[in-house]
């Protein structure tokens, strides 16, 4: 039932925007004021979270290693799974961020009669995860056409490639289908798989429902309920926001305001939720450290300073007590005094 509350929250957000924009004048609130606040909270929150993480010490050298570490010359090192130099770390991070390599390793244990235990690699999470993220990226890039004038040719190129199938008019975008499919599969995975369902919390479901609602309203607006989806007016609003002279020319569909309000909610929610893995992945010590603790000393920043304490100074500190107890000392002992 942990999905019920997030679902209700998203439905409530949709209803709030849908009903509120019927009131004259509220378009300005939902089209201008809330978007500005949301961008401010997003940027500020993002900076705050990264600085907060930057202030946290990393006491130990804790890269996750999953291969042969750097050793003798005739033992082949697994440079990606157990990097020992900065370049190897960069290569590993790059592949992690671009290809989600660690999800490729998702193993699933199954118990059969016998009893017989098998392990197999389950690639579904990787597949739908990567399809979702790239679709999202492409959709955000394509949306830049609404915010930039003249539209840069790289954005135009993304549009052309994404609508290459030339289905219908307005042209169908491939990423609209793939993002919807991957979101639904990611959601079904949480609901169906008993283990994943057990560990899923409200804050796992909320982003899924929220993004599903954003994508849903976007798709409705483009292909199904086009009434008053006047791209020219919307672009003038978007450019007005970006040039700090916001104007709302003419009526725009309430569906658009719902879409925008949900996006604003996402922006505000982002820095304070698990979605911050976007910035966090770069700061994750299990990934961004090299396994080189035998070559370089990892300094724990919160260790108190350890001053060297030589035997000579030790003896200086305890000489009286040592002599009193009859313990031999190197300097200033009774034998020395007697010899003189």
């Amino acid at each position: 039932m942990k999905y019920a509350f997030p679902l209700a929250a998203v439905v409530a957000l949709i209803l709030i925007a849908l009903i509120a924009v019927q009131i004259p004048g509220m378009q300005y609130l939902f089209g201008v004021i809330i978007p500005y606040l949301a961008v401010a909270v997003f940027v500020g929150g993002f900076i705050y979270r990264l600085c907060y993480w930057g202030k946290s010490p990393v006491p130990f050298n804790i890269p996750t290693t999953c291969g042969q570490e750097f050793s003798l010359p005739w033992i082949k090192q697994d440079k990606l799974e157990c990097p020992s130099t900065r370049l190897q770390v960069v290569a590993r991070m790059f592949l992690e961020i671009v290809l989600f390599r660690s999800l490729w390793r998702n193993t699933k244990a199954t118990m059969y009669e016998g009893p017989k235990l098998t392990y197999e690699s389950s690639k579904w999470l990787w597949l739908f995860g990567i399809v979702f993220h790239y679709s999202f990226l492409i959709i955000v890039l394509r949306h830049l056409r609404l915010f930039l004038e003249p539209v840069p040719s790289c954005v135009a190129l993304v549009e052309i490639l994404d609508s290459l199938l030339q289905v219908g008019a307005p042209l169908m975008y491939i990423t609209d289908a793939t993002i919807l499919l991957s979101l639904i599969m990611l959601l079904l995975r949480r609901l169906w798989n008993p283990y994943v369902r057990y560990i899923s919390l409200a804050n796992d479901y909320f982003p899924l429902f929220l993004i599903l609602a954003i994508v849903g309203t976007g798709i409705l607006m483009r292909y199904f309920i086009r009434s008053n989806v006047d791209i020219e007016a919307i672009k003038q609003l978007a450019i007005g926001l970006a040039t700090l002279h916001p104007t709302i020319v003419g009526p725009i569909s309430s569906l658009f305001y719902v879409h925008l309000f949900l996006v604003c909610t996402l922006l505000v929610y982002f820095p304070f939720s698990k979605l911050m893995h976007m910035g966090g992945v770069f700061l994750s010590p299990t990934r961004n450290l090299a396994n080189d603790s035998r070559m370089h000393r990892h300094i724990n920043p919160w260790n108190p300073p350890i001053k060297p304490h030589s035997y000579a100074s030790y003896e200086d500190e305890f000489r009286e007590d040592m002599i009193a107890q009859g313990i031999p000392v190197e300097q200033g002992g009774p034998q020395e005094a007697g010899a003189k």
Binding site: V39, V43, I47, L144, T243, H245
Partner: peptide, 20 residues
């Protein structure tokens, strides 16, 4: 951080009066 913030704020720098 600077790279992220600049990327997010591209629309604020890119457009000029002619864009309006």
């Amino acid at each position: 951080l600077l790279v992220v913030v600049l990327l997010v704020l591209i629309p604020f720098f890119y457009n000029n009066d002619a864009s309006k």
